[in-house]
């Protein structure tokens, strides 16, 4: 299936603000088995110079996967989602995510390719805080594997 190239360069409106909760941070840290007190204890975070507890580096997946759904679940794009896997991920941080942050995500369609019959979609997300400050840029690559793809299949697709 080929991708609708008119999606290339498309920028989506910022998502509704996501309120980062300290219990959600704790739950996420528990789920990755990370006992670091900087995710749970404001005093431990302050000892490292943070104003409040911070979130693990991959916490932002919660926001970016949902925001990216605006693109990859749009039937007009032509991506066969039943064969999609998460191929690559980049995060580039300006600062860590903190409890009580209000974050929005702005999604841009950065690249649409077909490689060896596999459709490849690369999205670039800007994550901004309550005052519009840039917190992180995220780049996510999804691949819809052609039937009977070889060794490159991998984890992390979306429902």
């Amino acid at each position: 299936m080929s991708l609708d190239q008119t999606f290339l360069g498309r920028v989506y409106p910022p998502t509704e603000p996501y309120a980062v909760g300290r219990e959600k941070i704790r739950e996420f840290a528990d789920a990755i088995g990370d006992e670091n007190p900087v995710y749970r204890d404001a005093e431990a975070a302050k000892a490292l110079g943070h104003p409040d507890v911070i979130a693990p580096p991959t916490f932002l997946m919660l926001l970016t996967l949902k925001a990216d759904g605006q693109v990859v679940f749009d039937e007009r794009l032509g991506l066969d989602f039943s064969r999609v896997v998460h191929r690559g991920q980049r995060f580039s941080y300006q600062r860590p995510v903190r409890a009580d942050d209000l974050l929005t995500v702005l999604v841009k369609v950065a690249q649409l390719d077909t490689v060896d019959g596999n459709d490849v979609v690369t999205l670039q997300d800007e994550i901004r805080g309550a005052t519009g400050e840039l917190v992180c840029t995220a780049t996510t690559t999804f691949v819809a594997r052609a039937d009977e793809a070889g060794d490159e299949r991998t984890a992390g697709g979306r429902p």
Binding site: R90, F91, T139, E152, R153, T154, G156
Partner: peptide, 9 residues
């Protein structure tokens, strides 16, 4: 900053 490539499941 990091970029990860998921090469196999």
């Amino acid at each position: 900053d990091y970029r990860a490539r998921f090469s196999k499941p």
